[in-house]
Design a protein around this nucleic acid. Sequence first.
DNA 1: GGCTGGCTTCCGCCCACCGGAAGCAAAGGA
DNA 2: TCCTTTGCTTCCGGTGGGCGGAAGCCAGCC
Lengths: 306, 306
Amino acid sequence: MTTDATQPGPARPVGRPRRPGLPTGSGLTSSVARRSGRSGGETVTGRVFSILEVFDHDHSALTLTEIARAASLPVSTAHRLVGELAAWGALERGPDGAYRIGLRLWEVGSLAPRSVGLRERAMPFLEDLYEATRQNVQLAVRDGHEGVYVERLAHPEAVRLFSRVGGRWPLHGTGVGQVLLAFAPPVVQESVLASPLTSFTTRTITDPAVLRRTLAGIRRDGVAVCDGMIDLASLSVAAPVRGEADSVVAAISVVVPSPSSPGGIEPRTLVPAVRAAARGISRALGAPTPSRTPRAVRPEVPRPSS
Amino acid sequence: MTTDATQPGPARPVGRPRRPGLPTGSGLTSSVARRSGRSGGETVTGRVFSILEVFDHDHSALTLTEIARAASLPVSTAHRLVGELAAWGALERGPDGAYRIGLRLWEVGSLAPRSVGLRERAMPFLEDLYEATRQNVQLAVRDGHEGVYVERLAHPEAVRLFSRVGGRWPLHGTGVGQVLLAFAPPVVQESVLASPLTSFTTRTITDPAVLRRTLAGIRRDGVAVCDGMIDLASLSVAAPVRGEADSVVAAISVVVPSPSSPGGIEPRTLVPAVRAAARGISRALGAPTPSRTPRAVRPEVPRPSS
DNA sequence: GGCTGGCTTCCGCCCACCGGAAGCAAAGGA
DNA sequence: TCCTTTGCTTCCGGTGGGCGGAAGCCAGCC
């Protein structure tokens, strides 16, 4: 029952089912559908969570009825629960009557060690990296089969990204994701390698064998270079961040225009800076010896993989 | 029943009772004490929140028994609820068995428009301000009688601050707080002016009449200069950020060493930069006309108040 | 071994959650 | 102006899930 800190709970489904979008049609919200096998709405807490889950970056303000529909709860029930949530401050109600996530919830969320705790230690190094490149700098951790972006510094004129603070992306497609995957427990790696690898561009790795080789390369070099796998125009250079137990707890990356596009940047120039920042953060987190690399391997080979 | 967006709920007590610290003594956790008039533990949701409220920057990892004690819940009840929270990801359990706030909760919290939404728009300007001063830059909003710090950029060698992202401070003692108070609805101002003004240093404003005059000055100048009111060694220059409806939705500040201490900085040099950044953010938020100042008043008077 | 402190499981009682239904209010549409 | 629709709020009786005492379990310690 004792679980790894990076694995929230034994019962928690790793690939939490993303709501497929607010059900627009009036749909069958009948009580019949409610009573039998539903997803996570049996207990009171479950219902509360199903309400919170309804919110989303594209649905950040919802009316009571929308919430009830999306959480498939009777309006009166939703009304009561939402009322309690709002009374505490987990939700806030705007003058338009719509509910939004409240400041109070953000506050407690800010106590999560894996996001804000990490972020605080990492920030100075991210700042420096941002300063040096004036592009995009990202910090992410792994949750299940996805990478969660904890922080992002983006220059207004830098290449546009799809990621977002608090957002998720599958591990195999992004720089930070590949790093997190490369150093994840074997069971997670195998699980990802066995699942279908969705493709975002023509350059996304979809072949498990290729991915496996790439991960080995990342483990060897301590750096990932990920060119145009989410967006053909951008390239990311990522490196692992280690924690107290010397395990990889996060990853950082710099995202720049791909060398194949106008104004592109050659990745090899970035590798040392990213590596240095990652090592700095690891040290700040209390990782044992910064120069820790397997004995049999050349300690500092800046050879850009791929 | 329709409430102002800045006022979470009608029933919510503004000065939410800060838990006085984990009750160390075995205390009377008897069922008698539980059953009758207790604060916010009657409904299931109430109990869930009372569990979340137990976490705190100084108590970010707690065991089950600690949680139960602090939330004054029977262990078995706490066990069940904490289990449900952990299953969803609102809490995470470390290898040591202690519970922490989970990544999932941080994620939904990140959807709060008044924190992250605001933060995203403000970040570029804060970056610039940070760049220019290499000190501390802060962004805060008002919640009830307190200022909540939404973002903070701190140079490692800058003057040490007591504030923290996600932390709260009474409005009358800080630069951002005074700005937020100066532009808060009259009822809030009167309420704060009527309540006892706790003192942090010898320079903290504790006289309501003085505070009233100070607020008027801030409204006139559009800037607050707050010297040594929380910490004698630091001084902050703050300015209001306006939203779509031209109401003040946030405040930013730069905190530097007080001129009376070694390495101190003269505030008047900072005023234009802080003002400009605040105006930039307001524009990014869609505030109507940036040059909006009462006709009868000199538009740009950098006269440092106090 | 005995003890203490903390975690987990069990199970029957009973109360607080549930949600259909009715009542309101505001916004179109004829 | 009246009627309809859509959405929010309130009410209230039935009942199922939350409740928590008690007992069992496991480490760590004297």
